[in-house]
Each structure stands twice: as C-alpha cells, then as structure tokens.
Amino acid sequence: MGIAALITWLLTAVGGFVMLGTWVAKGGVRNPSSTRLSPPLIFGHFALAAIGLVLWIVYLIADSTALAWTAVVLLVPVALLGFAMLVRWLPTVRGTTAGASDAPPERSFPVPVVVGHGLIAVITVVLALLAALNAS
C-alpha cells in the first residue's frame, strides 16, 4: 500500500509541476495582480506536498510509523490549499475566452491535468492513510 501511495503521489506531483510551470510561465509570479491564485497559496501547497512526499519516501526506507503519520497529517493542509485553489480557478475557466490578453495565468491550465491532479490526489490521500493505519 505504501508503494502504491508513492506512485500516485508522484503522478500527482507531475500534474502539479505542469500547472506550476504553466502558471509561472504565464506571469503568475511576475504579475501577481493578474492571477486569482496568490503566490503564497501556490507555493505553500507545493512546499507542503513536497515535504510530505520526501517524508513518505523516508518512511518507506526507514519503516518509521511516525514518519508515515507525519506525511499523512501534512496532506490535510495540502488538500485544503488545493481545494482553495480549485475554487479560485473555476471562475477563470468559465469567465474568460481562451487566449485573451487579460486572462489570468491559471486560465491556461489544461483541464484534464487539473481534474487528473485532483482525482489522483484523493487516491493518494486514501492510500497513504490506509498504509499508515496498516503500519500502526
């Protein structure tokens, strides 16, 4: 179960990198007033998810139940920040025409990547929780 959680966590990270790269390339950092997703929100989500992933990898190597639970607990604020970004992203998809010069950077996120990132993230949380429960 732990390895399955790692695989889904890595897949989730790939989708996250695609969106983060798109957001940065389209000016999200250079012009924060053009985006509905603030840099602290985006980078906080990224940092907590990355820390959790590193802890999960160390847990798999060291077989430390405390590390497993720490990584799972970190997924709570990661999920909350991700949901906050989803709520802020939805109006940009519906309210702007594609390619408009005043479109926020997150308007360029590929919808399948956003949906896949969210769905695989939910699977990751469930698998990590089950693995941590099994490790206890």
Rank of each mutant, 00 (worst) to 15 (best):
M1F: 07
M1Y: 09
I3C: 02
A4F: 10
A5Q: 07
A5Y: 12
A5G: 06
A5F: 08
I7E: 00
I7K: 06
W9V: 03
W9M: 08
W9C: 01
L11W: 05
T12G: 04
T12Y: 00
A13T: 14
G15L: 01
G15S: 09
G16T: 08
F17V: 02
V18L: 07
M19P: 02
L20M: 14
T22M: 03
W23L: 06
A25G: 13
K26W: 05
G27Q: 03
G28I: 01
R30I: 00
R30T: 08
R30Y: 01
P32W: 11
P32M: 05
S33D: 14
S33F: 09
S33G: 11
T35R: 03
R36A: 12
R36E: 11
L37F: 11
P40R: 03
I42H: 01
I42M: 12
F43D: 10
F46W: 13
F46P: 01
A47I: 09
A47R: 00
L48D: 06
A49W: 03
A50Y: 04
G52M: 00
L53N: 01
L55A: 13
L55T: 06
W56V: 02
W56A: 10
V58W: 03
V58L: 04
Y59L: 01
I61M: 10
I61F: 06
I61L: 08
D63N: 15
D63Y: 10
T65E: 08
T65Q: 13
A66Y: 09
A66I: 05
A66G: 01
L67G: 04
L67N: 06
A68C: 04
A68G: 14
W69E: 10
W69K: 00
V73R: 06
V73K: 02
L74Y: 13
L75W: 11
L75F: 14
V76A: 15
A79P: 01
A79K: 00
A79G: 15
L81T: 13
L81R: 07
G82A: 06
G82S: 10
A84I: 01
A84K: 12
L86C: 05
L86F: 15
W89H: 15
L90Y: 12
P91N: 12
P91V: 04
P91S: 13
V93R: 15
R94S: 15
G95Q: 13
T96M: 07
T96K: 14
T97G: 03
G99D: 13
A100R: 07
A100E: 11
S101K: 11
D102Y: 15
A103P: 05
A103M: 03
P104A: 10
E106L: 01
R107W: 04
S108D: 14
S108F: 08
P110H: 08
P112W: 09
P112H: 00
P112T: 10
V113G: 05
V113I: 14
V113T: 08
H117D: 07
H117G: 08
L119R: 03
L119E: 00
I120K: 06
I120Q: 07
I120R: 08
I120M: 07
A121K: 04
A121T: 11
V122P: 00
V125C: 07
V125K: 04
L127Y: 13
L129Y: 15
L129M: 13
L130F: 14
N134M: 04
A135E: 14
A135F: 10
S136N: 15
S136R: 08
